[in-house]
Design a protein around this nucleic acid. Sequence first.
DNA 1: TGCAGAATAT
DNA 2: GATATTCTGC
Length: 246
Amino acid sequence: MFTCNFPEGLRVLVFVENLQTLLSLEKHLQDFQYKVTRCQEGAGAMHLLRNHMNKFDIAIIEAQNSTVDIFRLISEIASEIDLPIIITSKDDSVQSVINWMKIGVCDYLIKPIRPEDLRFIFKHVVKKMQVGKRVESEEKATAEKSSSVGDSTIRNPNKRKRSMFIDGQVGEKDQDHVRDSTTKKRRVVWDNELKKKFLDAMEDLGPEAVPKKILERMNVVGMTRENVASHLQVTFLLLLTMASLN
DNA sequence: TGCAGAATAT
DNA sequence: GATATTCTGC
């Protein structure tokens, strides 16, 4: 079905409203050799899901959307499509996760999303294939209690947890030293777009403008609180300097 | 323990 | 000079 270098080329449909976020997600997915189809707008996503489902292996969909009720959309199509769906959301409440899992999504990623979160999404495709194969011979096994309630790599935004699936390539149990060649950890370059996002976030947060909040508001894939804090520090310094010049 | 903010390192 | 990392105190 797939090439020998699976999951290279896995076809991922990404439905995210914000273009910046969308492009950023795409880029990171491509770093992992995934093949991305972008979708920004509800009707298009709907159409793709309904009529071209077989063109994709998995979908990543943002929970919040200004024009479409994603929850309802997925509830409706879940039964008619056979595609693993990963939800992206800033809501880290247990209840939210449960709600989404109930309607059949296979994973739930809490924003902000780090590139690492995307690396192993193929596991859901593998799982689906395995389940599909097992289906016929299923009834022979008497109601084995499912050992886990889904395998989603739900991440507490504050904790650091890596997906353990198929980590076998290298036996290292240590830090991130074993990042694959395509995933160079690169320093953030604060181009005008990022700066604008940062400033915008700062502006409407006002006195609440603290790294964590700014990070959330910016909603940029791969950005960390430390990145923001660092930038905040210099920005603050700059503002101070300017203020003293008056 | 997590986080903000300052200090320091690369 | 820009950004990351470490330190400190809350």
